[in-house]
Design a protein around this nucleic acid. Structure first.
Lengths: 140, 140
DNA sequence: CTGTATCCTTAGGGATACTG
DNA sequence: CAGTATCCCTAAGGATACAG
């Protein structure tokens, strides 16, 4: 494990947020769970950004330690695991959406779904509710 | 210079945002400008988080290159510079506010101004407008 | 398939001295 | 004060082999 993540430990909320999920990969994983319905190790590994397997394992563990995701056995298939957002992790949704909005506005190269982008403006609250509903962990 | 910042260059808006300002220090600098009225090199250097002088210079340059901030001479004092958020940088405000909200909710140790935190919930739009107004670059 | 373990490279960043 | 320039080190992360 590449365990460490020395925290800055000033009381600043921005510093806290950065120390918790402000690395190169955490939000990519969160995005995959939140926006793309991914929930298994293999699905995360297959992401466009090509995360290395050891890094993925490390980040999943870290996100668990921080209480943003939870890991449980797949009831359909006893030898695999499912990763799901906890309420605390799910509550990152507004941050993710604002990042999508910002990038869509300034990166001509961005390929965000137009349906999502326009809805961020026109129906932010509804979109938020939908995403949170879809990722509610009370299945099984 | 520590120039590089290899971009992932997938079309994903989250990856783009992370590649643009997703390092350990950029959002700390943005926060200082946006929420604390800082605009000079020395003021940034004095932050609680103790950024090293070379890193600060590098990040300021990077943020300029990305078009998030601009640097101009202080009209009051010809031998100093002022750093200000551009509209593009100012448009990160919603992201910053959502991060403050999240940390305030989950970090018992956070020392965010309660005035700001409660206003994020009760008057998000008004708070946004106020912050943007305060940081409008049309002074001088 | 779901990870661990190991090895190795490199970029990020700290300390500090120095310059206009 | 407002930066540059060096030196150095560590932790983040890539490649790959291996295990349950």
């Amino acid at each position: 494990m590449t365990r460490s993540k020395s925290k800055r430990q000033t009381g600043c909320p921005i510093a806290f947020a950065l120390d918790t999920f402000g690395d190169k990969w955490s939000l990519i994983i969160i995005r995959d769970m939140l926006m793309r319905g991914k929930e298994t190790y293999g699905e995360f590994l297959a992401a466009d950004e090509k995360i290395a397997t050891n890094i993925l394992a490390d980040r999943l563990q870290h996100l668990q330690d921080e209480g943003l995701i939870e890991k449980k056995r797949d009831p359909q298939n006893r030898r695999r695991y499912l990763y799901r957002l906890t309420p605390k992790g799910l509550d990152l949704t507004p941050i993710v959406l604002e990042m999508v909005r910002w990038s869509a506005a300034y990166d001509p190269n961005t390929k965000a779904s137009p349906a999502v982008v326009t809805r961020i403006q026109s129906d932010r609250e509804g979109l938020l509710k939908d995403l949170i509903q879809k990722n509610k962990p009370e299945r099984d």
